[in-house]
């Protein structure tokens, strides 16, 4: 049953991705991207990653959709249709995909309990969470304790991005015109 849900949800994700590729309406693409994130959150629950699933549902399907919609209101809704189909991107993508499929040949089977990734440090973290940290959620223990510096670095990244967004959007148009950096001839 678990495997069936997995297969169906992944199929849905594939269909959504193709739909995002083919649609020319940016609003539709944004909504499909939100649905894509939500479907992947459901899939992540099925793959036992509950913490990741609710972060993905909140951040991927929620905040990023809101940001996209905000951008669309400030820009435009439709994508320009280019008639000419160019082969070079398609071939590059095809070649990369073929290489990656070739790479999966050596990967352990899905759900394999003897996979190398499970052998090294995972048993120590599980035992350590039970004996030393003594909270039920192993993911929280690893995130905030064993890999606490990673999380600190992550907040630094978010801070930097926030400062970047403020620097880009904080300046008002009038100031730009005074400074001459805005090009008034292209004002529509």
């Amino acid at each position: 049953m678990e495997l069936l849900i997995n297969v169906v949800l992944l199929g849905l994700l594939g269909i959504t991705a193709i739909a995002i590729l083919t649609t020319r309406h940016l609003f539709v693409a944004t909504m499909l991207a939100g649905g894509y994130s939500l479907t992947s959150a459901a899939l992540l629950v099925n793959l036992d990653a509950v913490d990741v699933a609710f972060t993905e549902a909140a951040v991927g399907a929620g905040i990023s959709t809101v940001l996209m919609l905000g951008t669309l209101t400030l820009t435009r809704r439709r994508e320009k249709v280019k008639k000419d189909f160019r082969w070079s991107p398609f071939l590059v993508v095809l070649a990369t995909g073929a290489l990656l499929v070739y790479g999966t040949v050596d990967m352990p089977a899905f759900g394999d309990p003897n996979a190398p990734a499970l052998q090294h440090i995972v048993p120590e973290y599980i035992a350590g969470t039970r004996d030393d940290i003594q909270i039920p959620n192993i993911v929280t223990a690893v995130l905030a304790s064993y890999r606490g510096y990673d999380t600190l670095g992550e907040t630094a990244v978010i801070f930097t991005a926030g400062v970047g967004v403020l620097l880009l959007l904080g300046r008002r148009r009038e100031e730009d015109e005074e400074a001459g950096t805005r090009r008034p001839e292209r004002d529509a």
């Binding site: 972060t55 990734a117 599980i126 999380t151 990244v157 991005a161 970047g164 880009l168």
Partner: peptide, 21 residues
Amino acid sequence: NPIPHVLILTAIVVGIATTAL
């Protein structure tokens, strides 16, 4: 395996930061 979960939690948040930028 909880370790990929932790990595991906970080990646989601960094991802939204890059999207916003």
